[in-house]
Amino acid sequence: MNGSHISCVGGSASGTHPLSPGTHSFRLAGLVQRYQVHGSGPVCVAHPGGPGIDWEYMRMPVLEERLTMVYVEPIGTTEDSRLPSHPHGYTRERYSRFLEILINRLGVPKVHLLGHSHGAFVAAHHALRRPERLAGVVLYEGAPVTGAEHGAEAARLVEAFAARHAGHPGLPDVLAAFGAMSGMSTDEQTTAVARGVLPSYFADYWGNEERLAPFRDAVRATYISGLDEDGRPDLIDDRAALKGLTVPALVVVGRHDVICGMRWGLELDELIPDSRLLVLENSGHMGHIEEPELFAGAVRDFVLGTSAEPDGAV
């Protein structure tokens, strides 16, 4: 599908208003785009990570107490939302074009955009290229670059994680899951890898396993290659562009994140003019699960402080 020929037909499955609670769907050039609405207050659109991780891990009930959370189900994660080139072709530009249509349908002048992990890369791209409808952007566990430099830093942090947990009976399975990443080619393999590496995504998974195991078991994933339609990597280097970002930004990073760690959070904060930085000292990659009140408080204050809508308005 050529992103410049996106069309929009169809309607909402859960009501006539695009921000009514529940599941909504519409069609873009023959693909189904779904999103979920929960809560009330200024609108915050949340884009999950992966690419290909199911949206439900991003559910944030504490934020829903003061904000209208719109959880995007990115294209490719369901059978009826897959590109003809699936599992290829899911570039940041394509995700951003789908976001543009979704945001325009919501019927509010501006929204806040929160992206987690790969979703933070998408959110940065959108804020840089389509800032007109954004009141602010939250880059949650993102980075300004991908590729070899990002991979080397992640490898270093995974090695440090392994050293800290040497001798733990669960460590070999985590390392085996990381080793299996390069061989993924099915949804089942991708889900298994996502669940397998997850203990390293928390500051102390094994110390809180009774609470976190159900979260891990519920994670679902679709295999998405990270390549464009022609089989080329969708490599990212936003360092120069981020210096000119005009949208208010909040950067969130967990002290113990092994995938998009402190180096990248600090670099994002340094690059973006007048950005705010939240370091979650007792979190890894999943601060909204590990420190939900602190995470939600910072995001809520940022959204309410940069919103043109009064508190409680939709």
Rank of each mutant, 00 (worst) to 15 (best):
I224K: 10
T146V: 10
E281Y: 00
M181R: 15
A313E: 09
G49K: 04
S81P: 09
A29S: 15
L67D: 08
F161D: 09
V279G: 08
H288C: 09
H112A: 06
Y71M: 13
R105F: 05
L235S: 13
G261Q: 02
G41I: 13
A163T: 12
G49Q: 07
T78F: 02
S185W: 02
G297D: 03
S275F: 08
E93Q: 14
L294K: 14
I103Q: 05
E309S: 12
G305P: 01
H47L: 14
A46R: 09
F178G: 06
P144S: 10
L102H: 05
P144C: 10
A155L: 13
S7W: 02
G3A: 15
A241V: 08
P292R: 08
R27Q: 14
I6G: 04
V145R: 10
A213H: 06
P51H: 12
M69P: 00
Q189N: 04
W206T: 13
A148F: 04
G312T: 09
T191M: 08
L242S: 06
N282S: 15
E281H: 06
T246L: 08
R59C: 11
T68D: 06
E93F: 12
N282E: 15
G183Y: 03
P310R: 02
V299L: 11
V145C: 03
E293S: 11
